[in-house]
Design a protein around this nucleic acid. Structure first.
Length: 891
DNA sequence: CTAGGGTTAG
């Protein structure tokens, strides 16, 4: 500007022109400076120069001052100069005044002026902006008539126009016909495919671009990222991500938002978080994507936390509010939801359909049906989702009259979709209503919804839960496509139907099928690992969880703690526990149970007290764990104190399970008559489980009268649980009452009950070997047999005498002896000894409780063979070392 | 580049 002033003063016109020209070029978005230059031009007499008028129009256009553009243009009228026309059309298009731009174009043609190549790009963009197909095609024809078909800028504009009009065929044709293409041509086409969700084509074009060696830019990248996310092209996505760093566009908001959104679609939480963390500039989109992504992954609390951080920087828009309603509907925080709702009302966007639909759901999930209904009634444009949401609220709260009424109303306005049917189906499943399920299955087949994957999944679940595992399998096999939920459902169904092996198999098949597991998959498979003590699979899952970023999920963490403890890996169990950022009652319960199973009663108690110190409210389940731990460590007084505190301090009414634990606690410590008195003084009716707890302790007592009394009680209760019948039968056997044994066994048979066959298993070099009672078909049977008999001799020298009372059959002594030796845990241990190097610790699992003689024998073996042997039975762990067991014979 | 309802786990 200083230079301009000097030139003006000196009167050197040529120098003045040059300096003004330079000054104009430098002006960016500062409209004040622009008006000064404009004034200078007028005073210096250069105002009528076409060159400067064009420059000014273009500059005013950039500061969105179209009025000034038009004023300048009109003041230059009848110059007949196309350059000026181009400037004004460009200015209009640039400021989204598309109709005005097209008016100017018509005016230009009316003036019989010939448009040039610079005219068309903005005219074409204007057609695209107005979504005016007819006009667009007519302009395209005009371009052809004038022979401008080979102009790169016009071609690019045409590609972009057809893409925005959704006609990718034409866009591609224009692209193909272009003799010369630049990066913008490619970008326009990739963007077009991507914006219209032709993910595969977008990716293909991007890869073609890469194939011919052109380096993509920021726009190519931000167009292809949604496509990678859309088709879950993990490899392509990661390659693009790599390229972003290589060409240094990682700092760009558009690009990093694209990456953020892609990893969100991939479900890769860890990368998703990292991208967000490392962003230098974050806009509303970044925040919305992040908050919404967290919520989508079930991390509602965290989503709320980031929402709160977001609103300290940005005013939340409708999208952000919608996300937070969703998070609130799935977390306990209804207050925040209500607060945000009030805020939305103040902003005057109450009637937004999407947001209102989430609100209906939010209030419904929190049981506030009235508010749900209010939002629904006030909604001016209800769509299918609105109807589904309000109806599902009533279904969820079993208000059948109300939902049927609404359902009828809905059918008058809009066609019901599969969503409602899925909801009904699952509700029927939860209520165990099989006939409703089958009826719905027929209905939805008539309606043609049977190919819907959600319907399929719900049906599989329905049949499995109703006990038709065959039908459920059939549906699974014949399904056209399966997703992670399908697999999760199948895995859980197999486990519930008692087929753990099938569950494991399905988990492996799922992986082979390339279906990405989600947090729920982990929650389905981890308990399975815990159940069968699948150490290796468990660890692999942990790795997977870490990689996919599910480790911040509390439920997943809890499942990991349990898995490690049940697999005998206390070290990792503790490590996971300690690393968990948020812990809930379940987390603490898992660790307390773990200590309980290892007979570490004191540690269990101190863990419980540590939990109390964190102000985590105990529930009735954590007390079961604490009582169990005390009972397995002989901490009678401490256990009783907890039992009393539960009621007096925490106001939790003891349930049957708690009473059973106390009975167990007392009787395990030999206080049998006290236990009996306790049962008789309980405020609830004792059932087989309560008497059973007492009876199992009677086996180690000499007081036969109490055993007989309790046995009679259990039989009179007439339970259908095989376990208690077997227990009674065993007690009679140990008392030598073979007549009674026969009666009980007959009653078991009459009832058609089956005894759980005992089995043990051991994992050696990633292979699991299973042994049942009297198994004699495995490869090394003879060697195992020989080893057991050699060990018997060695043990006899140490003073071992077989405790034949553990064999509860009415057979000869010798047969008893050989039967004991065939107990599955013994076979597994011997097999382990044969197949591992000296000194290697062994780990054996058993589905039932370990018998007294096997317990003694294992102690001897640990001493003689100098091995640590960890045995997990149905109840707890026994660590045998140097002739003693960690349970101190208290199990 | 960002927002809504359905299935699985607990």
């Amino acid at each position: 500007m200083a230079a301009v002033r000097i030139c003006t003063l000196s009167g050197n016109m040529q120098a003045l022109q040059v300096s003004i020209s330079k000054a104009i070029n430098r002006v960016t978005i500062n409209s004040q400076k622009l008006s000064k230059i404009h004034a200078l031009l007028i005073t210096s007499g250069l105002g009528r120069s076409v060159f400067f008028a064009g420059k000014l129009i273009s500059k005013y256009s950039y500061v969105t001052d179209v009025t000034s553009c038009l004023l300048i243009f009109r003041s230059m009228m009848h110059t007949g100069n196309v350059y000026l026309w181009n400037s004004i059309i460009r200015a209009c298009t640039h400021n989204k005044m598309y109709a005005k731009a097209l008016d100017m174009y018509s005016e230009l043609r009316g003036e019989r002026l010939i448009a040039d190549t610079h005219t068309f790009p903005s005219v074409i963009s204007a057609c695209a902006g107005l979504l005016d197909i007819e006009m667009g095609e007519s302009v395209h024809n005009h371009v052809k008539e004038l022979g401008f078909g080979s102009d790169v800028y016009i071609g690019n504009a045409l590609i972009d126009m057809y893409a925005r009009l959704g006609d990718l065929g034409k866009a591609h044709t224009v692209f193909e016909e272009m003799a010369r293409k630049d990066i913008v041509s490619w970008n326009s086409l990739i963007f077009g495919y991507s914006a219209n969700e032709y993910w595969v084509e977008a990716l293909e074009m991007y890869n073609q671009l890469r194939g011919i060696g052109i380096v993509p830019d920021l726009f190519s990248v931000s167009s292809v990222l949604p496509a990678c996310g859309g088709v879950l092209a993990f490899n392509d996505g990661e390659i693009v991500h790599g390229l972003v760093h290589k060409i240094g566009i990682g700092k760009d908001v558009l690009v990093s938002n694209g990456l953020l959104s892609m990893y969100r679609k991939f479900g890769m939480l860890m990368e998703f978080r990292r991208i967000f963390d490392e962003m230098i500039v974050r806009d509303v989109v970044s925040w919305n994507t992040f908050v919404c992504g967290l919520s989508e992954s079930g991390l509602f609390e965290e989503s709320i936390m980031f929402f709160k951080r977001m609103v300290s920087v940005f005013k939340p828009d409708l999208l952000a509010l919608t996300s937070i309603f969703r998070a609130c509907s799935n977390s306990g925080d209804l207050r925040l939801g209500k607060y945000a709702h009030d805020y939305m009302k103040k902003c005057g966007t109450v009637t937004d359909t999407v947001a209102s639909n989430v609100l209906i759901d939010m209030y419904g999930k929190h049981g506030d049906l009235l508010s749900s209904r209010n939002v629904f009634d006030q909604l001016t444009s209800k769509d299918r989702v609105s109807w589904n949401s309000i109806i599902s609220c009533y279904i969820l709260h079993s208000c059948s009259e109300e939902w049927v009424k609404l359902f009828k109303m809905m059918k008058m306005k809009t066609q019901p979709d599969s969503f409602l049917l899925v909801m009904l189906l699952s509700q029927g499943t939860h209520l165990g209503n099989k006939s409703l399920g089958i009826q719905l299955h027929c209905e939805l087949m008539k309606m043609g919804f049977d190919a819907d994957i959600f319907i399929g999944n719900a049906l599989i679940d329905m049949y499995a839960k109703c006990g038709n595992i065959e039908d459920s399998n059939y549906l699974f096999r014949t399904m056209k496509c399966r997703d992670n939920v399908t697999w999760n459902t199948m895995i859980v169904s197999s486990v519930h139907s008692g087929n753990c092996f099938r569950g494991m198999e399905l988990a492996a098949e799922m992986r082979v099928a390339g279906v990405l597991p989600d947090a729920t998959t982990m929650l389905c498979v981890l308990p399975l690992c815990s159940l069968v003590a699948a150490k290796r699979q468990g660890k692999e899952l942990h790795g997977c969880i870490y990689k996919l970023g599910f480790d911040s999920d509390v439920a997943v963490g809890n499942a990991l703690v349990e898995m490690y403890s049940k697999c005998g890996n206390m070290k990792n169990c503790l490590r996971v526990f300690e690393l968990m950022k948020t812990k809930d009652v379940v987390t603490w319960t898992a660790l307390i149970s773990a200590y309980g199973m290892y007979g570490e009663g004191q540690k269990a108690l101190s863990t419980f007290h540590a939990m109390e110190a964190t102000a985590t409210a105990p529930d009735h389940i954590v007390f079961i764990a604490v009582l169990f731990s005390c009972s397995h460590s002989g901490l009678v007084e401490e256990g009783m104190a907890c039992f009393n505190n539960m009621k007096n301090v925490y106001n939790i009414e003891p349930r049957r399970e708690h009473y059973a634990c106390v009975v167990d606690l007392l009787s395990r410590s030999g206080r049998l008559s006290e236990a009996e008195q306790f049962i008789l003084s309980m405020p609830i009716e004792p059932d087989a489980s309560i008497w059973g707890a007492l009876l199992s302790a009677c086996r180690r007592s000499t007081d036969t009268s109490i055993a007989e009394r309790v046995s009679e009680r259990i039989i009179s209760i007439n339970s259908n649980d095989t376990g208690y019948h077997v227990l009674v039968s065993n007690i009679y056997a140990s008392l030598g009452r073979w007549d009674k044994v026969k009666t009980v066994r007959k009653s078991i048979q009459d009832k058609g009950l089956e005894k759980d066959p005992g089995c043990s298993w051991i994992e050696i070099q990633n292979k699991v070997y299973v042994f049942g009672v009297g198994t004699n078909v495995f490869a090394q049977y003879e060697e195992v047999r020989k080893l057991i008999s050699e060990l018997s001799d060695l043990m006899a020298k140490e003073g071992y005498v077989a405790d034949l009372e553990c064999v509860l059959h009415d057979i000869e002594e010798d047969d008893k002896r050989s039967m004991i030796c065939g107990h599955s845990e013994r076979l597994a241990i011997a097999f382990g000894l044969l197949n591992t190097k000296a000194g290697t610790p062994l780990q054996v699992m058993k589905n039932l409780r370990v018998c007294g003689d096997c317990h003694t024998v294992t102690k001897y073996i640990s001493k003689i063979m100098k091995r640590e042997i960890l045995v997990r039975d149905a109840n707890r762990f026994h660590l045998f070392k140097d002739g003693v067991c960690s349970c101190k014979d208290h199990w």
